[in-house]
Design a protein around this nucleic acid. Sequence first.
DNA 1: TAAAAGTATGTATTCGTATGCACACTTGAC
DNA 2: GTCAAGTGTGCATACGAATACATACTTTTA
Lengths: 350, 350
Amino acid sequence: MTKKPTPIKRKRPTMYDVAKLAGVSQPTVSRVLNGGEMTGRISEKTTERVLEAVQQLGYRPNAVARSLRTQRTQTIALLIADLSNGFYHVMARAVQDVARQHGYEMLISNSDHLYENERHFCEIVLGRGVDGAIMVPIRLSNADLDHYVSQTHIPFVVLAEYIVHPNIDVVFLNDERATYDATRWLIADCGHSKIGYLGVADYYPPGPRRRHGFLRALNDCGLEPDPRFMKMGDFTLESGRRAAHEFIAEGELPTALVIVNDLMAIGLILSLQEAGYSVPDDVSVVGFDDIPEALIVRPTLTTIAQDPHDIGEKMAKALFERLENPTLLARRIESFSTLRVRDSTKIRRP
Amino acid sequence: MTKKPTPIKRKRPTMYDVAKLAGVSQPTVSRVLNGGEMTGRISEKTTERVLEAVQQLGYRPNAVARSLRTQRTQTIALLIADLSNGFYHVMARAVQDVARQHGYEMLISNSDHLYENERHFCEIVLGRGVDGAIMVPIRLSNADLDHYVSQTHIPFVVLAEYIVHPNIDVVFLNDERATYDATRWLIADCGHSKIGYLGVADYYPPGPRRRHGFLRALNDCGLEPDPRFMKMGDFTLESGRRAAHEFIAEGELPTALVIVNDLMAIGLILSLQEAGYSVPDDVSVVGFDDIPEALIVRPTLTTIAQDPHDIGEKMAKALFERLENPTLLARRIESFSTLRVRDSTKIRRP
DNA sequence: TAAAAGTATGTATTCGTATGCACACTTGAC
DNA sequence: GTCAAGTGTGCATACGAATACATACTTTTA
C-alpha cells in the first residue's frame, strides 16, 4: 500500500495548540504574545516556553479572529478614481507609507470614475469593517456619502472640495484659484488674448471649478470667452486627441489653451503635432496635474502641479488622527498647487 | 452620577437585532439572507418579515465574523512590484475584473522591488487569511516562497519564470526568446552590427534571461558582444538617462540598443536628444514592455510588448480555478510577447 | 502569625455568523 | 388513526483570539 496522497492541509495551528505544547492555557499564550502590560505579567520561564512552542509550530495569529474580538481590523481602505493615472500612484504610496508606519494595511480599490464602483466600495467598507477609509469620490453626491457615513462610525477622509459633511475630513485643492492664476499668467505675463479652454463635463467635480477659474481670469482681464475655443473631453488622452481634431477641422486655433488635466493636454499636443502644428509656436498649452509624462512629451508640458504626495500624506494623517482621537471634529485641509512653467508655453507679443 | 460621556457609536445591528425585530431566531435570519437551498427553506411569510427588518435596521452582515465562521474571506491579495509602472495597472485591473466577477475583493500591495516588502506581504497573506495570492516576486527566492507556501494552504500564483514549486502556479513570459527575436531582427532585418544592451543587475529576475537572449542572438549571427556597449540600470527612467550620459562621456555609441524596459529606454532617448543626438538616426532603440509612455515619447518607441491584460487574466483565472478545485496541480502558463515596430528603430545598410 | 497585598495563571465568556441536529407541525398514505 | 415522509424553525455549538474575573500561591505588613 502506498502512502496516502498527502492530506494537503494539516490545519493551521491555533493558540490552543501552542498552549498545549507549552503546557499552559490559551489566554497565557495570548498574554505572552500581546505583552499588554495591563493584562498581567507572565513569568520569564513561561514566556520562554510559549515562545518556543510558537516557533516550533510556526504559529501565526489569525487576524480574522482577532478582528472579530477587538472590533478593529488594522486595515484602511483607499479608493482611487483611476488606477492608470500617475497622480494617484504617488498619492497611494504616500498613504501606504503613513499607514504602514501606524501598523495598518491598505486595501486599494479603483473606481474607474464609475458611480457603481464608488458605491460598491462604500458597501465593502461598511461590510468588511475596515477601520477607516480614504477616497476620491467623483460621482458620489453629498447625500450618498451621508447615507454611508451615517451607518458606519469610522473616520472618512475624501479628496473632493464639493463634499461638506460634519463627519468627513476633506482635503481639497484650490483648483479654481490655481486655474485662475495660470490663465491670468497666460494673459498678463505671456501676452495671450485668444485663449481657449479644454475641460470636462460638469458632473466631474473638478470640472466646474477649474472652468470657473478660467472664466473668472478672462473676465478680470477684460476678455470674453470665445465659444469656438471651449471644448470638452473626459480626462483621457484619447479625448485630448479628439479635441485637437475638432480644432483642426474647424480651422481656427487659439494661441493658448488651458486644459483640465495633463493626459488630455498630451493627447492634444500629439495630435496637433501629427497634423503639422507646433506647440508652443502655434498654440501654447497649460495642463493640470504634473504627471510624469509631462516631462516625457516634447515640448515638456507647462502645468499646474498638484502635490500628490502631500495630498496623500495629509489625507492619511488626518485619518489616523481621528482614529486615535475619535472625538476630533472633521476638518477641511487645503493642499496647494504651483504653476510649473516648461516649454509648451511661450510669450507672445502681438 | 452622570451618564457616561456618550458612547458615540450606537452599535451596528447584528443578526440578533434583526431576528428580534422580525420575531424569529438568529439562524433563521442567516438562512433567509444566504438562501442556501440546502439549509432548509424558509416560508415566504417569514422571509418577508426578515427582509423588512433588515431593511428597517439597515443591517449589513459582518464580513469578519462570517470569515471566521466559514474560513474564507472572499478576498485575494495582489502584490505588484511597482505601483508607478503602467504595466502593472493594466495587470491589476485585469485581476480585479476576474476577482469581482467571482465575488472577491482584492487587496493590493506594492513592494517597490524591496525584499522586505515582499516578505511583509507574505506575512500578511498568512496572517490575514486571504483566500489566494497573486504576486510578482522580484527578490524572493524559491526557498523563501517555499517557506511561506508550505505554511499556508491557499493557492499562490506568481509572475516569475524563475519560481519552480509544486504548489505554485507560474505565469511567465518568454523573455529570453522575445529578446532573442528582437535582437536578431535588428541584425538580420535592419542591418545593425554595432549593437549594445542596457540591462539590469542579475539579481533582478528578468535580468539574466533578457541579457541571455540578447547574447544568444549576437552569437547566432556571428557577432561578438562589445563590452563598451553593455551597461546596466535599475528599471527607472533616471537610470536610463545615466546610461546615456555614460555613452556620451565615453564618446562612442552603438548604432542600436536593446534595453531591458521602456522606462529606461525613454530616459536614454531623452538624454541623448538633449545632447544633440538623434534617435533613430544615430542610435536605434528597442524597449521592453510597451507602456503607455512608449506612444508619447518622440520618436515613438519600438518595443517588445508584453500583454499585461492577458497576464493578469491568466494569473487570476489560474487562481480561481484552483480555488474552485484545490486538487488541481500547479501549472506553468506562458504569456506571449510581440515586437511592436515604431519609429525609434531604423534600417541601416552599411 | 494572621491578614492584606501582590503575582502568575486558569476559567468562562464574548465578538457575529453559519450550520448540524433536534423538534414540532403538517400532509398524505395505508 | 397511526406512521412515514416531508416542512419550517429553534437550539446549541464552533470558528480563534481577547479579556473580565476568579483562584492559587507568594510575599509583605501589622
